[in-house]
Amino acid sequence: MGDYFQTIVDLDATERDAQELGARVLDWLIAQGIVNAERTDCVLDGDGYGHEPGPHFAKAVDDPEPVDLWSNGLHVQTGRTVFDSGQGDAGAATCPLCLTEIRLVDETWQPIESAWAPFQGRFHDWAEQGGEGIVHCPSCARPSGIDRWSWEDDYYACGQLGFTFWGWAELSSGFTREVGRKLGGHRTAVLRGKL
């Protein structure tokens, strides 16, 4: 058992525009009836308060059957955050400069410590210290910020803005594209996970 969630992360939002973009998308979701305007105790992150599904939530999901769970709402998060998929870990990371995939687990899904070494502490540096979290690629040896790396199955995403849907059916690709358009065409990542 567990609680499932999906997070749409804006990969391009800056610290300065994250609040405004989050409010813009939330206003659109409310106007469309996808979520309710009132905040209630319905999510597992932040302060526990989020927006319950609205009367037209089915516009956002592939399966329109309502889910009757306590944790069944939307949480909007702003600020430097390393979003992740909950249980487990990423199987691989891809360098943004040379596009080499670095395997992080072996064939039995055990972490490869030497492969993880360049990433140690970099998420913390980026999220908590406000730095770039510089990673030197094991393949090309060039430096780049941890926020520029991509992760197998979108396991991690570094961003200033995220929309987490708790207990919803799978978000449709059309809906996630429309959220990207409402964000001004920003690149997005969709993380799916379980706690």
Results as ranks from 00 to 15, higher is better:
Ala157Ser: 08
Phe165Ser: 09
Gly167Tyr: 07
His136Val: 03
Glu113Tyr: 12
Pro111Lys: 09
Ala92Val: 03
Val9Pro: 07
Gln19Ile: 12
Ala157Leu: 05
Gly185Phe: 04
Arg16His: 15
Leu11Glu: 12
Pro66Asp: 04
Asp153Ala: 15
Gly73Ala: 03
Ala58Ile: 06
Pro66Cys: 07
Leu74Arg: 02
Trp166Thr: 06
Val190Ala: 01
Val190Phe: 06
Ile146Cys: 14
Glu15Pro: 01
Met1Cys: 01
Glu15Ser: 14
Trp28His: 10
Ser71Cys: 13
Glu52Trp: 00
Cys95Met: 08
Pro53Val: 02
Thr78Ala: 03
Pro96Glu: 10
Phe57Thr: 04
Gly180Ile: 05
Gly162Met: 02
His75Thr: 07
Val105Leu: 15
Leu99Met: 13
Phe119Met: 14
Ser173Arg: 12
Trp166Leu: 10
Gly86Phe: 07
Glu152Ser: 15
Asp106Gln: 11
Ser71Phe: 11
Ile8Lys: 08
Tyr4Met: 04
Glu15Val: 12
Val105Cys: 14
Asp41Val: 05
Gly133Pro: 02
Pro138Arg: 03
Val135Glu: 11
Glu65Arg: 08
Trp151Tyr: 15
Asp45Ala: 11
His75Gly: 10
Ala169Tyr: 05
Leu44Cys: 10
Ser173Gly: 10
Leu69His: 11
Ser85Trp: 00
Thr176Val: 15
Ala92Met: 04
Gly50Trp: 00
Val105Ile: 15
Pro118Lys: 07
Gln77Leu: 05
Trp28Thr: 06
Gln110Glu: 15
Ser71Arg: 03
Cys95Phe: 08
Ala189Met: 00
Asp89His: 07
Ile8Tyr: 08
Gly22Ala: 01
Ile146Glu: 10
Asp154Phe: 08
Glu65Ile: 09
Leu69Arg: 14
Ile30Trp: 11
Pro66Gly: 01
Leu74Pro: 02
Gly88Pro: 04
Glu15Cys: 06
Gly133Asn: 02
Phe123Tyr: 02
Trp168Pro: 06
Glu101Val: 15
Ala117His: 13
Thr176His: 12
Pro118Glu: 09
Val25Ser: 01
Arg16Met: 09
Glu128Asn: 12
Asp84Gln: 00
Glu132Asn: 07
Asp63Tyr: 09
Arg187Lys: 12
Pro143Trp: 05
Gly174Asp: 15
